[in-house]
Amino acid sequence: MSYISLEQIDKKYNINTAAEVHALRGVSLEINKGQFVSIVGPSGSGKSTLLHIIGCIDTATGGRYMIQDKDLSQINNKELAEIRNKKIGFVLQEFGLILNNTSIDNVSIPLMFSKTKLKDIKNKAYDTLKKVGIEDLAYKKVNQLSGGQRQRVAIARALINDPQIILADEPTGSLDQNTSMDIIKLLMELNEDGRTVIIVTHNIEIAQMCDRIVTIKDGMIMGE
């Protein structure tokens, strides 16, 4: 049985208006636990929309989405939030960090919405920063860090609750070639630990480093 299962997923924006957009058209995808999947395709093809639906930050307008046989279209907002918090770690192209805060404060955010005790938060965040190799930057403000360091902070934040799924939307889009490779290696290490990693990328070289490449165009999967 697949770890992540999407059946005939549809996503429309601005429904019944002149500006209606059909972003995803009957997308079906099965991803097994521990796979490293890249989603590629041209701009506006629906890659990010698909990733957002997988990451539970957006909902499909049609079809069925399941994680570990749990139908996520049937659960309420609170349960969805819990899944985002515990099962999924999200990494964004522009890092999605609070620039005025320190690395450790940024990494701690998911713990603030979990049941972790307040006294354990700092240690856990520090340990996670250590995992991604930037523990010495824990008390530096994010706006003082380089792009690569920021992305590591973002990955640490995605990892802090030890999720089994890591989603990365163009994680190397704002980075130079060397740093990009460092970040991909880091994601590969996380995959080797047994996590399912799904990345959206334009970079074919990076995509080829993954177990699977899913190509999407005009909201439809064109092939693997």
Binding site: I57, R84, F90, G96, I109, M112, F113, N161
Partner: peptide, 9 residues
């Protein structure tokens, strides 16, 4: 961002 990290809207 908080929403993405596990808060409800």
């Amino acid at each position: 961002l908080y929403y993405m990290c596990g808060a409800t809207w």
